[in-house]
């Protein structure tokens, strides 16, 4: 118990400490690395929760399966350019298994898929972005499951949110500071991809996959009492 408390305190102190230390030590090009570190540390509380909670074995294996499905989906739908089901499956994981599960699916999907597509300084950002998308999906799971319109809206929202978060990264990485002009430039140049790749593909995949997964998961819950 003392160990867990200590870990929490470290996490709570670590993030502000990173920011302060970064600003003091490297006054010029601080933002990029600080933001990477903060994005990474923000994921740690979820990982700690996962270690501490008494997750059933079934949920642990299902977490691995959902993550593997989202990564495999990236390969399977590779013939369709820009259509990647990762976000949709992360949202579905959050929807049906709760917010913590959603966060973990998102964060793990980023790490594992980057083993195939290349790790980089963007990995913590992707972890955090997909994680938070899954987390929010878990919070609003009820309307998401019941109402199709909410699902479409959330699909669009998560696509835009992901794109914006990654644009923040691009800006900070290439400028060192948060240059607003560059940020607008990044948003505008990414706009067609944002619309096509993130928003439309998210909505299509969510509309197809949500009922598909829903049926299977309901059956699984009934049969095996997860």
């Amino acid at each position: 118990m003392a160990k867990t408390v200590l870990k929490y305190v470290i996490t709570i102190i670590l993030i502000p400490a990173t920011i302060i230390l970064g600003v003091v030590l490297f006054s010029d090009r601080s933002y990029a690395v600080i933001s990477i570190a903060v994005a990474f540390f923000a994921c740690i509380p979820f990982f700690l929760c996962f270690e501490r909670n008494k997750y059933s074995t079934r949920r642990i294996v299902l977490l691995a399966v959902m993550t593997a499905l989202s990564v495999a989906g990236r390969f399977i739908f590779a013939p369709l350019p820009f259509f990647k089901p990762v976000t949709a499956i992360v949202v579905i994981a959050g929807m049906y298994f709760g917010s913590e599960f959603g966060f973990l699916t998102g964060a793990l999907s980023a790490v594992v898929s980057n083993f195939y597509f290349g790790q980089g300084p963007w990995t913590p950002f992707q972890m955090f972005s997909w994680g938070i998308i899954g987390f929010v999906a878990g919070i609003i799971s009820n309307p998401l499951i019941k109402n199709k319109l909410v699902l479409i809206l959330y699909g669009a929202f998560s696509g835009i949110a992901y794109s914006l978060l990654m644009d923040v990264w691009t800006t900070m990485w290439s400028d060192g500071t948060f240059n607003l002009v560059r940020f607008y430039g990044a948003i505008i140049s990414a706009l067609p991809i944002t619309l096509e790749y993130y928003v439309i593909s998210n909505i299509i995949f969510l509309l197809i996959f949500a009922p598909l997964f829903g049926k299977k998961i309901e059956r699984l819950k009934l049969k095996y009492e997860i």
Binding site: I60, L63, A64, A72, I76
Partner: peptide, 23 residues
């Protein structure tokens, strides 16, 4: 420090090629 996460991680790495093969 994260034994359970490591388990999920290694299981996922095993599942991905398996899923692709069965697909």
């Amino acid at each position: 420090s994260f034994p359970r996460l490591a388990l999920v991680f290694s299981m996922t790495l095993n599942f991905v090629p398996n899923l692709l093969r069965s697909f």
